[in-house]
Design a protein around this nucleic acid. Sequence first.
DNA 1: AATGAATGAGTCTTCATTCAT
DNA 2: TATGAATGAAGACTCATTCAT
Lengths: 229, 229, 229, 229
Amino acid sequence: MPRRRASDPRKTPLQARSRDTYDAVLEATARILETKGLEAANTNAIAERAGLSVGSLYQYFPGKTAIFAELIRRNDAATAEGLAALVAATAGQDLASRLRALVQAAVARQFARPRLARILDYLEATLGADEALDAADERIVGSVEALLHAHAGELARPPTTVVARDMLWIAKGMIDGASLAGESDGAAVEPRVVRALLGYLGVEEDAGRGGGAIRPGGRRRARTGPPRP
Amino acid sequence: MPRRRASDPRKTPLQARSRDTYDAVLEATARILETKGLEAANTNAIAERAGLSVGSLYQYFPGKTAIFAELIRRNDAATAEGLAALVAATAGQDLASRLRALVQAAVARQFARPRLARILDYLEATLGADEALDAADERIVGSVEALLHAHAGELARPPTTVVARDMLWIAKGMIDGASLAGESDGAAVEPRVVRALLGYLGVEEDAGRGGGAIRPGGRRRARTGPPRP
Amino acid sequence: MPRRRASDPRKTPLQARSRDTYDAVLEATARILETKGLEAANTNAIAERAGLSVGSLYQYFPGKTAIFAELIRRNDAATAEGLAALVAATAGQDLASRLRALVQAAVARQFARPRLARILDYLEATLGADEALDAADERIVGSVEALLHAHAGELARPPTTVVARDMLWIAKGMIDGASLAGESDGAAVEPRVVRALLGYLGVEEDAGRGGGAIRPGGRRRARTGPPRP
Amino acid sequence: MPRRRASDPRKTPLQARSRDTYDAVLEATARILETKGLEAANTNAIAERAGLSVGSLYQYFPGKTAIFAELIRRNDAATAEGLAALVAATAGQDLASRLRALVQAAVARQFARPRLARILDYLEATLGADEALDAADERIVGSVEALLHAHAGELARPPTTVVARDMLWIAKGMIDGASLAGESDGAAVEPRVVRALLGYLGVEEDAGRGGGAIRPGGRRRARTGPPRP
DNA sequence: AATGAATGAGTCTTCATTCAT
DNA sequence: TATGAATGAAGACTCATTCAT
């Protein structure tokens, strides 16, 4: 990994072909991370998978780190985008329903490419700070905070940034855990997360909806188990 | 007797000096991971930091991976141990108090060496399966499950393994999040986690105790923010 | 098409420059083996001698072993080729003359780079089996067998594969021995080998030709002497 | 391998226990060479197999090379001894019978530990010169020469050192070849070698004895085949 | 004398990055 | 602009040898 600043792409890809190539590199990287892991994601492998030469790769990215950074950035941006859209789309519904929608999306995302998500998390924590990421983070927390504000009356506690952040981490923790424990049925995880969030907010769960017993997830697969908090 | 695993130490350190050296390697590795990150933790650096030669290092560990594995194993074992002890020590107390004790310990641990904890998590997910780790995991979940069983009457839902696991991940998620967001005051995180856990369990928080408003954490530092669930 | 073997070159060198580099590596290796021995033939030395960097070397060969393997393969192939050509070229001549031609070539080859030949022999026995080598071996034996068949009437015994193989080893043993004993005059060795081969076949040596006394070889140098059978 | 001169053992082992240990090291080395090959014969492995510590090993031998050297020396000495004894023991018999006896011994030796023999040959050629080895060589050649002298009248050619040496290499070559080709029946090889030697000497083979057809040896096993002379 | 822990130079191999074509 | 050969620093690991106990 180069010492170079994890920064912007070397040039803003304006032409359609350039943009395609640029995207191809990112997708190739994602695919390798997902299937072979971080160690296998070297520039040669990425270039080959993306269908170009190493030399060309360096015309789009100043270095390996920048590819990862951009991958994270996009991922975060997409999340922020999706979250904001979902909050907007569910305006007017009751809090539980809206959380359900959010959690559902989060679960879907994480269960789609769990390994990739995990590696990007690791990289994000490892790589240096980045304004763009912080901006996305703020938008994400902001969306949840906005949601809470819209339901401030129903809450046992005032809606703050900290509460919003906590909620995000509760959801993330539970979903990660379920995924790592080998649960393959996202539908089983979802209500548990919603329940946890409502519980944290001190809101009684909507009696009529999905209240049922906690369904055990899929059998724990060999790998990593419960967290060591 | 278990089959010899590739990650086992090369020779069981019986003599005091050997044990010291062995521990020194582990501590050196932990220190490098904590301060310089995973990439910096190469065998030469570890050996130097531990105050011995590479050759000697390889007399205690069959390879770099084994060092990491042992580090994780010890970490997990300590957690399992601590958790079990705490559950035992708080027998007879009310559920909220007991959870408080557990969370306090967890927070203390994570805030002590956050980066190390994060890297070990990543490594644990990356490295192959390991009986010892699975055993520790089971003990950890088991302790929480036992705790729940002791308070089954107060719970809104039956205490299952899944519930126990969810609780662990809720706590881990929140603590990680707080740590990553730059919160440096563990005491501020603790009650929030307890509240989340009790909320998830559907238990009313002990009215008299620590009910207060959610205190905002320390100023968020630039570093990685909220999760993208 | 044969399965890709681990010892195959990493990429088939199509371009002239590539082929040159590829050959340069082989020649550098041969030269080092010849002058400094097997222990000195490390990848760094080979790369340096070949005039390229280690990295480049690994673009042409997947590993050190593959270089040796290719060296052996070429050597064997060249021998097989040469032998077959010689057998064809001498068609119609009498048996003794043809053997003389063969032995002369063998002597020339072995006396040219005796140490290299010895090391390649050792490596061939050490490295794992290899189809290509076996094929070359068969061609070599086959050539001799074909030669015998053409003169079956003159032989005291039927020409079999075993006889052909024995002849090859007789020649190899004698030439090796002479070389190791410090004989530097190939011309002195040649008639002895021919005589041994004809003797083994039970054929009277052509009276008129080279019947003379056995000339003693060059003074035995310090180096390894006669075999210990 | 140390640059140190491949020389005498560090001290002449006088005491019985010392001698035993010394021998144990040599036998351990031989066993490892035979079963695991040259690469596996490192000082640690040798010491362990011999049942002593590396430190002790270095009290008996100045270095690894010295162990090999001594192994070769003993091997050669034993051969020289055996050959001389056999020549003496068969005094009075006819030439063919005596050669038969010699070849039989040689075949037995080579078929007993073929890999070891091969490796020692390689080492002998690789290691520097050594007076002791030259002396053994001379005794070996001398024995054969003496044998020839005793039958000078029957020979087509005067018995010289060169002839003796050639004979030794013919035998060695053929036996090596048979062994390498996978022939496991020494009895099948023996008469072929005798025939070759008598043929080289221009002596008619004793009509009554073993004149039969050449029996094909065992099927060629995968490994190294015929020589490339 | 024996031990075996310690040493560290040396080996093979990988991979981010550059640059001539 | 694209290519991909070339570079070489760096990293994991081995092993002959030494020396304190």
